[in-house]
């Protein structure tokens, strides 16, 4: 393998952290995308998003442990199951809050997140459960300049595909056109004979399903842990503030970009790696308050 050093850092460490950054970025991108889509239609910030990401990982683990259903079916089943719980939450609770101040939506979803995290912590403890990498993706590939574990490569590719598919559906299909129209003016779209309440429900279910999918992808990398979404969601909030929620592509670019920046910080100035995204948020607020891709609200 070809190795070299840059600013006193070995290329192996550099590319290793870059890859880790890309993976974190993939999760930032998928989660902030879901938050943005939900915010667009429901006008609430879904605080439960982190808990739903965690649920995705847990459902995958339960499918394997209790039913013997492996990774590949879980990749489809777990997001659907998490999405269905989302639909139930939207139908029974969230839809009663649309007429109120949108802060109540934040408070409700915060309470839901606490409840879900607490219940799973009671049942499974806080130490984390292992979830094995599927056989097909074990091992790694020598890229010449670094060693790439196959599963990590798969996560980056899969999340890119998921993000771009979401972008395509929203920006380039008829369904997406309805969605964008309903985001702009729900009353008018309803007058055209489109069932907007059902669209809102399905949007929430899909956004939440996206978080569940991210959770399944994360399960073999991080251990399956009731707290895995709690701190992540706060970082994702900062990502959303930096990118602004106006643009789908903006969310994707911001998510991956910030993951990489965080990875690089880990190499060059590890002390700041936990705070770098928040510092960037402060800088963006000072220079471009609406966010990099945001429209002025």
């Amino acid at each position: 393998m070809m190795t070299f050093t840059i600013f006193g850092v070995s290329s192996v460490a550099l590319f290793g952290q870059l890859l880790l950054g890309l993976i974190n970025g993939a999760f930032y991108a998928m989660l902030s995308l879901g938050l943005a889509v939900i915010f667009g239609m429901l006008n609430i910030i879904n605080f439960t998003h982190g808990a739903q990401y965690m649920m995705g990982a847990f459902v995958a683990w339960m499918l394997l442990d209790y039913l013997g259903i492996g990774y590949w079916p879980a990749l489809v089943l777990a997001p659907v199951i998490v999405g269905i719980t989302g639909v139930i939450i939207e139908r029974t609770m969230l839809h009663r809050l649309y007429k109120l101040d949108h802060l109540y939506g934040l408070l409700l979803t915060f309470g839901l997140a606490l409840t879900i995290q607490g219940l799973l912590r009671n049942q499974y403890g806080a130490s984390g459960l292992p979830y094995a990498i599927p056989d097909e993706l074990r091992g790694g590939t020598n890229l010449g300049f670094m060693f790439l574990p196959n599963y990590r490569g798969w996560v980056v590719v899969a999340s890119l595909v998921v993000c771009l598919t979401t972008w395509f559906v929203i920006e380039r299909t008829k369904l997406g056109a309805y969605l964008r129209a309903a985001t702009e003016n729900p009353t008018l779209v309803q007058a055209m004979g489109i069932n907007v309440p059902r669209m809102i429900t399905l949007t929430y279910g899909t956004g939440v399903g996206l978080a569940g999918l991210a959770g399944v992808l994360a399960a073999p990398i991080y251990s399956v842990n009731p707290n895995m979404g709690a701190d992540l969601i706060i970082v994702v909030f900062a990502v959303v503030v930096i990118g602004g929620m106006g643009s789908i592509l903006g969310s994707i670019v911001t998510g991956f970009g910030l993951g990489v920046v965080e990875g690089l910080t880990k190499v060059f100035y590890p002390e700041a790696s936990a705070t770098v995204i928040f510092v960037i948020m402060v800088i963006v607020l000072l220079t471009k308050p609406a966010g990099l891709f945001g429209r002025n609200a």
């Binding site: 915010f39 609430i44 910030i45 949108h102 802060l103 934040l106 701190d231 706060i234 970082v235 909030f237 900062a238 959303v240 503030v241 936990a274 705070t275 928040f278 510092v279 948020m281 402060v282 607020l285 000072l286 308050p289 609200a297």
Partner: peptide
């Protein structure tokens, strides 16, 4: 910093800044 944005963003910014203090 936080009053530069309103509503839901205000809540998210204050939360993120507080997380910075935590770290």
């Amino acid at each position: 910093l936080a009053i530069k944005r309103q509503g839901i963003y205000f809540a998210m910014i204050t939360l993120a800044l507080a997380q910075m203090v935590f770290f």
